[in-house]
């Protein structure tokens, strides 16, 4: 199905998408790169000029930079670990012969449809709030002091909120994959004397690997940019305890009004994203080829 005319048509048809995405990516990136080498503060707009790597050096030497890097990776890694592990367990459970599987799926997928600011503010206020939250009420009913989630465990609170949002996605994709496993394979393994645990390890888990890769890829894409949940809840605090790389950039841009430094941070974030993307694409690219 490829004649010269159809190949030409194909190029023409792909062109708008490629061109638009190219502009959407390259123009802001080029501008960010430009600003990252400039002195550009909104407070003193008259003082401008080239400053070399000063912005980068400031950003990397900032006391919270490595904390923010660590928090970013902790957020991505933590949410992935929680959602994939719980996702597998819940998928295994729902895949059993249970009553009302259709309704179950509807209940489980619900958090995925909740927009991030709503998810964050509901969980923050109605659940994690130290005076009026439901968790506080539970603690007090056992006679314990309420846990100050956002105060004492800010990063864990953010990870918990984001995990709640993404758990349905992981669960449903893993469930779909699980349901495509032929029961004959499992029965054959049973005949071969494999215990339930071994059936999971040698049959079910390998079968789900592809789905797990997909979950990791897609979630990482979204998790690297997580911002709204932190903005709504901890605002990066207390101190910088829950500041991630995106949030640190945001603080430079909005609070400190230092565009040059924020831009340098942006470029660092893009480099980090590219490193992560490189490894992920290699992983998923292999899976999608087959």
């Amino acid at each position: 199905m490829s004649t010269q005319s159809s190949r030409l048509a194909a190029r023409v048809m792909v062109a708008p998408s490629v061109l638009l995405l190219f502009i959407w990516m390259v123009v802001p990136l080029a501008m960010t790169l430009y600003y990252s080498f400039r002195l550009y503060r909104l407070i003193s707009p008259d003082r401008t000029g080239w400053v070399g790597f000063t912005n980068y050096l400031w950003f990397i030497n900032a006391p919270e930079f490595w904390l923010a890097m660590g928090n970013t990776l902790a957020l991505v890694g933590g949410v992935l670990a929680i959602t994939v592990t719980l996702g597998i367990l819940i998928a295994l459970l729902i895949d059993q012969p249970v009553k009302g599987q259709g309704v179950l799926r509807i209940l489980v997928i619900a958090p995925f449809f909740v927009m991030p600011p709503v998810a964050a503010s509901i969980l923050e206020n109605l659940f994690m709030h130290p005076q009026n939250g439901l968790f506080a009420a539970v603690s007090m009913s056992f006679g314990a002091q309420p846990i100050l989630f956002l105060q004492d465990y800010p990063m864990w609170s953010v990870i918990a909120i984001v995990s709640w949002e993404w758990l349905p996605f992981a669960t449903l994709i893993l469930l779909t994959s699980l349901q495509s496993l032929s029961s004959e394979q499992l029965e054959a393994a049973e005949m071969d004397g494999a215990s339930a645990l071994n059936r999971f390890r040698f049959i079910i888990l390998p079968h789900m690997m592809r789905a797990i890769t997909v979950v990791i890829l897609i979630q990482t894409i979204f998790l690297l940019g997580i911002f709204g949940e932190i903005f709504t809840t901890t605002q990066g605090g207390p101190g910088s305890a829950s500041t991630t790389l995106p949030y640190m950039i945001f603080k430079q841009a909005i609070a400190a009004k230092d565009i040059g430094r924020a831009a340098a941070g942006g470029i660092i974030a893009v480099i980090l994203a590219n490193i992560v993307a490189y490894f992920l694409m290699r992983g998923i690219g292999r899976h999608l080829d087959t």
């Binding site: 990482t220 949030y247 950039i249 841009a253 941070g265 942006g266 470029i267």
Partner: peptide, 9 residues
């Protein structure tokens, strides 16, 4: 994968 915050300004 490009973080939105990075290109916000």
């Amino acid at each position: 994968m490009m973080p939105a915050v990075a290109v916000m300004i």
